[in-house]
Design a protein around this nucleic acid. Structure first.
Lengths: 239, 239
DNA sequence: GAGTGGTCTAGACCACTAG
DNA sequence: TAGTGGTCTAGACCACTCT
């Protein structure tokens, strides 16, 4: 077994067995190298695995810390309308005493073949609206919404966590889900910067298509959630 | 911008712009180092990011290759009974012309606090059954099933991809889902070995609870799927 | 045997953070 | 200013795969 794996396992053992508790600072990389009798680069390789799996958190110039074991928030996906989904998500956060806010990052004409196909290939341009869902000052979910340009103008900085309240109200639309999908991917450099995770960390991806009350596809949504922060739950029975 | 990121971006560019197509072998790490004027370790750091994101695939002693862009299989999760879910999954694979098989890895008395709690804290021991779903000789999904010991005995090596056919038939059970959840995590060393991915790769995780026809919780399932191979889809409307 | 990737070392310099 | 993590180098040896 390679040295970095041995070091990684030893550190993971200390964390799981209570020798190191969330918030604790690890010895510096140089100290760990001396302790295990290995080079600093070998220590770094061990640490980087634990960082990607969410067990450690590194702060440049400060140190390496044991991550706090916050269980991920369960977000219910058994809802059909967008209003209900937003309400469920907000209540999932407030049940933990957390305030949640969806922050507008910007909008542009960035097209996307997948989005265009899902929206039945509309003739006009597509606009992409990007948002960041923040709870207690920490980033949780990075979202992109593709929608026809004429609707995107109504998107507003939300006061209550719902970016599309203005869109649905001002256009008399009632949006409901046609389908949702769940997948996973490694964080890109952009994801990493926005979500405060290292490049390559696992992200949970939820895509979906919303139709209006007449069955027309209106919004294609792509969300990228920190895997350590959020989990999607599908309940098939009443609680 | 650090050198390894520049190298990584340059290689990603060659892939996305068609300079390198799926199956192509990259120049060796030493050659890439000479080409970009950087150390071999810097090249390796660049490559490792692309491997975790699924763009490249490394074979020791052979070379580094552009990964084939196989779109992930859509697995429908809108079904309520286990039989229907198995049938849907099998048909999703056969629609691509792939044969799928669920291979029994073993069973043990490994307990799990989450599983035990979900199964309403049964008095007897819990057994864990582990399987690997293989399609066309490639690993796709690593599953663990926790169930009461008296039922685990009926688990058999499946001939038709359904590990639990014997359990349900011999006990007169009809299993249906109570809930399912979707999350993501980094591949552990064990995941990596079983699923043929590097440690730290993103995995898509689906957990769920099955009840029998009398509402008793019977099986707690935990699946870990290669993120580049599988996607779960929830359809809210008929096709 | 030749070539590939996998691991490891020693040493260096830089960027960032805190006191 | 001191200490931390972030990046990079040169060089070495090993394990693996193919011919």
């Amino acid at each position: 077994m390679p040295l970095y794996r041995q070091v990684s396992d030893a550190l993971a053992e200390r964390i799981s067995c209570g020798g190191l508790v969330p918030g604790d600072r690890l010895p510096s990389e140089a100290e760990l190298g001396a302790e295990f009798g290995v080079n600093r680069l070998t220590v770094r390789q061990a640490i980087s695995e634990l960082v990607r799996s969410g067990k450690l958190r590194v702060r440049q110039g400060v140190g390496t810390f044991v991550a706090s074991a916050v269980p991920p928030i369960d977000i219910d996906v058994a809802t059909l309308t967008v209003e209900a989904a937003t309400a469920r998500t907000t209540s999932a956060f407030s049940a933990h005493g957390w305030t949640v806010r969806e922050q507008l990052l910007g909008r542009d004409e960035q097209d996307d073949p997948e989005a265009r196909a899902q929206l039945d290939d509309p003739t006009g341009p597509l606009h992409r609206v990007r948002t960041l869902t923040v709870a207690n000052g920490e980033p949780w979910i990075l979202s992109s919404y593709w929608l026809p340009a004429e609707l995107a103008g109504a998107v507003a900085e939300p006061s209550d966590g719902d970016v599309f309240a203005a869109v649905t109200h001002s256009n008399g639309l009632q949006l409901r889900y046609a389908w949702r999908s769940f997948s996973a991917a490694a964080a890109t450099a952009d994801d990493a910067q926005r979500l405060h995770v290292p490049v390559g960390s696992p992200l949970l991806i939820r895509e979906g298509l919303n139709r209006d009350q007449d069955g027309r596809p209106v919004v294609y949504v792509h969300r990228r959630a920190r895997a350590d922060r959020a989990r999607f739950v599908l309940r098939h029975e009443p609680d």
